[in-house]
């Protein structure tokens, strides 16, 4: 093989890469971190439930008791925050967010949602997100930022009291934190279901193409 041909081959492979390595590494790191955070968070919730009729079974919690769950939660938070910050910085600096997630229009979201529900949405080009994907991915990034900020305001309501005040005080920040978690769980259910329905998207997130 001539060096020219090899270079062409490399370019061809590179152009087929849908999910670059940094996206894949950060995606799966985030997956581990968020699952640890949710499971330990549910155990912490159980110590003082926000809703009397809603508590969580030991089968979906982590830590065994409140003390163990807090240890897990405040360890996994570093993984979530450091990885999340790196993802945000890289996403903006490389222009990936702009290229992949914009533009989003209400009309586009509705027509793509209708197409998806009637199984007429094309998945031929995985490198381009449809409007529903763009909305969900941009939305879940926003929810991710809010859940970290509300978490910080619950953790440090004196040292970060201005942040806590922004959420309407300590007690309301707990509800915000909980509803962000619920939103993430709902997102995860749809996300995992769709990844299973379109297996090549899962493959792309594992091996890149």
């Amino acid at each position: 093989m001539t060096s020219l041909a090899a270079a062409e081959q490399r370019t061809a492979t590179a152009s087929r890469v849908i999910q670059p390595a940094w996206v894949r590494v950060m995606h799966w790191t985030n997956a581990v971190a968020i699952i640890l955070m949710i499971m330990s968070g549910l155990q912490i919730y159980d110590a003082s439930p926000l809703f009397n009729s809603l508590t969580f079974s030991r089968t979906v919690t982590l830590g065994g008791w409140l003390g163990g769950a807090l240890l897990w939660h405040f360890a996994a938070m570093w993984l979530l925050m450091v990885n999340g910050l790196a993802y945000l910085v890289t996403g903006f600096v490389t222009g990936r967010f702009k290229k992949k997630l914009l533009p989003i229009s209400p009309r586009g979201v509705i027509s793509d949602a209708v197409a998806a529900l009637t199984f007429r949405l094309s998945h031929d080009d995985l490198s381009k997100y449809n409007q529903v994907q763009r909305l969900l991915y941009a939305g879940i990034i926003a929810v991710g930022i809010v859940i970290v900020l509300s978490g910080l305001s619950i953790w440090k309501p004196v040292q970060f009291q201005y942040l806590t005040a922004l959420f309407g005080g300590y007690d309301i920040a707990r509800y915000v934190h909980f509803f962000c978690m619920s939103t993430i769980v709902a997102f995860l259910a749809i996300h995992v279901l769709l990844a299973v329905l379109v297996p090549k998207s899962l493959r792309a997130m594992i091996i890149g193409h």
Partner: peptide, 15 residues
Amino acid sequence: RFISGGASFGALTLL
């Protein structure tokens, strides 16, 4: 072991 509770069946096994 009690303290790390769900670790054995939970996310760590996945990990």
